[in-house]
């Protein structure tokens, strides 16, 4: 241990100076860092998106660094001038937060080859949406003989004590609440009807899961028979032999845009752009649409086929009809109040 006090002091001073004058740090040449989501997202991106990117850039170096949206924002926030991430992936709520905190660059729409081909909802100037997440009704076909057709079916007496929901921590839980509000005359800015409806649903609730992942466990354990559920999560369960089916209610599926962003001050802006272009391209989206990924494409040049066409929508016209997009800017304004209210009011 030859650390002298002097070297320690020097190190400490240097670290302090770097903190005080962030401009002092020099941008290092490093590979492109893409913060995707963990789990099936990471697998899909590793299998399809990364090879496409390598091909498009002549084998440019890139790293997948999967983490939660929240962590992405925290990491970039901590080093705004020299962010450790070049490309972020976000659900609608966090995406708006990242934009509000000035962490992302506008997407260079005029340079993009694919932006104009995206469906209108996916054309977001601050970060386009290469994929959708779709929430519909999940049910156990062994116990639920007549497939549900409406969100209202959750209130049917036969499902007393068999319904599962998630709390509002998740995008899914919050989106479901907004949908409830809308069904009962409310909106993104008037959530009251949703809480009333939830109150009526209480006798039916078997569980309020802490996150959407727990819903999967609850289906597996037979704890619940019916719940709002994420299409892609259900596909994974189905593939494992759990008896679950997904159906789009007649009110329409709740759709979330997963948006992809170039991080402000990224030293790899050009490569970041190329990665996003690859993610928007019909080739990548067509591949991701297939088994086992089944990710809903946003590029209108991709013809919808297979399981997606069967369960969700035949084409983009039907997507426009069947998918309900919510106004997350409005949702974000009051979400913390809703969560607090949910904490206090919903006791099963």
């Amino acid at each position: 241990m030859l650390l002298t006090r002097r070297t320690l002091m020097q190190t400490a001073l240097t670290l302090g100076a770097m903190h005080a004058f962030p401009g002092l740090t020099w941008a290092q040449a490093r590979p492109l860092v893409f913060a995707t989501f963990t789990g099936s997202w990471e697998e899909a991106h590793k299998a399809v998106l990364v090879p496409a990117f390598r091909k498009a850039t002549g084998n440019a170096d890139m790293v997948l660094d999967p983490m939660l949206s929240v962590d992405q924002i925290a990491k970039v926030n901590a080093a705004k001038n020299n962010p450790p991430i070049d490309v972020m992936l976000h659900d609608p709520g966090p995406a708006l937060q990242a934009i509000a905190q000035d962490l992302v660059e506008p997407y260079p729409v005029e340079k993009s080859a694919h932006y104009k081909d995206l469906i209108p909802e996916a054309q977001v100037p601050m970060g386009p949406s290469p994929f959708f997440q779709v929430v519909g009704i999940t049910y156990n076909p062994e116990t639920v003989k007549t497939p549900p057709t409406s969100w209202a079916d959750l209130w049917k007496p036969e499902f007393k004590g068999r319904v599962g929901i998630t709390n509002l921590n998740s995008t899914l839980g919050t989106g479901f609440m907004v949908e409830l509000a809308k069904m009962h005359g409310g909106s993104e800015s008037n959530i009251d009807p949703a809480f009333k409806a939830l109150e009526a649903l209480r006798p039916s609730l078997a569980a309020v899961a802490a996150n959407p992942g727990q819903l999967a466990t609850l289906f597996q354990q037979g704890q619940i028979d019916i719940s709002p559920g994420n299409f892609n999560a259900i596909q994974i369960l189905k593939a494992r032999g759990v008896p679950v089916e997904f159906v789009i209610p007649k009110e329409g599926a709740i759709a979330f845009k997963t948006t992809i962003h170039i991080v402000k001050n990224s030293p790899n802006k050009e490569l970041a752009f190329k990665l996003i272009e690859a993610a928007l391209s019909p080739e990548v989206q067509a591949q991701l649409m297939e088994e086992p990924f089944l990710i809903v494409p946003t590029n209108t040049k991709v013809a919808i086929k297979g399981e997606l066409a069967k369960t969700l929508a035949k084409d983009h016209a039907e997507i426009a009809k069947k998918f309900v997009f919510q106004d997350w800017a409005k949702i974000n304004e009051q979400r913390s109040a809703w969560i607090e209210r949910f904490n206090r009011e919903i006791k099963v």
Partner: peptide, 8 residues
């Protein structure tokens, strides 16, 4: 706590 206690 969250796995056994759930979301509420």
């Amino acid at each position: 706590q969250s796995l056994i206690g759930g979301g509420q």
